[in-house]
Amino acid sequence: MTTLELVVWGVNEMTEISRNQIHEIRYRPEGSYPYGLEVFRVSDLRRRTSQEGMRRTYGYTFYMLILVTEGQSNQMLDFEPCLGAAGSLLMVRPGQAHNFGESEDWDGWILLVRPDFLWPASSREDLRSGFDIERFPACIHIDAMGLERAESVIQWMRKDAACNDESSSEHPPHDLGRSTQFVEDMQSHLRYGFYALVSWLAITYRNTHFDDQRRRPTLMRFHQFKDLVEQHFVEWKSVCTYAREMGCTERSLTRAALDAEGISAKEYVLRRLGLEAKRLLIHADWPVGVIADHLGFQEATHFSKFFRRIAGCTPQQFRSVNGHE
Rank of each mutant, 00 (worst) to 15 (best):
L37E: 04
E166Y: 13
I22P: 01
F182N: 10
F318N: 06
M145T: 05
R178M: 04
P81T: 02
Y58F: 15
N207V: 02
D126H: 06
L281V: 04
R93N: 00
I310N: 04
M145H: 06
F100I: 07
S32D: 14
V11K: 14
D132Y: 00
A138E: 11
A311Q: 03
A144P: 04
E134Y: 01
Q96W: 09
R56K: 13
Y60I: 09
A265S: 13
E13F: 13
Q298L: 15
L111S: 01
C240S: 15
H98T: 04
R319G: 08
H283C: 11
D259N: 07
R56T: 08
F136E: 03
H232T: 02
A138Q: 11
R47A: 07
R191D: 05
F100A: 12
A277M: 05
P120K: 08
W106P: 00
Q224V: 03
V321Y: 12
L127Q: 04
E299C: 14
Y205S: 04
F307G: 03
R272H: 11
S122A: 02
V113C: 02
L37T: 07
I110G: 06
A243P: 04
T314Q: 11
C163S: 09
F117G: 03
A260F: 01
F117Q: 01
F306M: 11
R272M: 10
G53K: 06
W236Y: 13
A300G: 15
H302E: 15
F62V: 00
M186S: 11
M157D: 09
Q231A: 05
Y33L: 12
N12W: 10
A284R: 09
L77E: 04
E184N: 08
R251S: 12
D160W: 11
G323A: 06
P34S: 10
F136H: 00
S43Y: 11
L37V: 14
S188D: 09
D105C: 03
T15W: 07
V290K: 13
A311M: 03
V198P: 00
I154A: 00
H141M: 06
L219T: 04
L253T: 07
S43N: 12
V68P: 00
R308P: 05
S199F: 01
R244A: 12
M64V: 15
F210C: 01
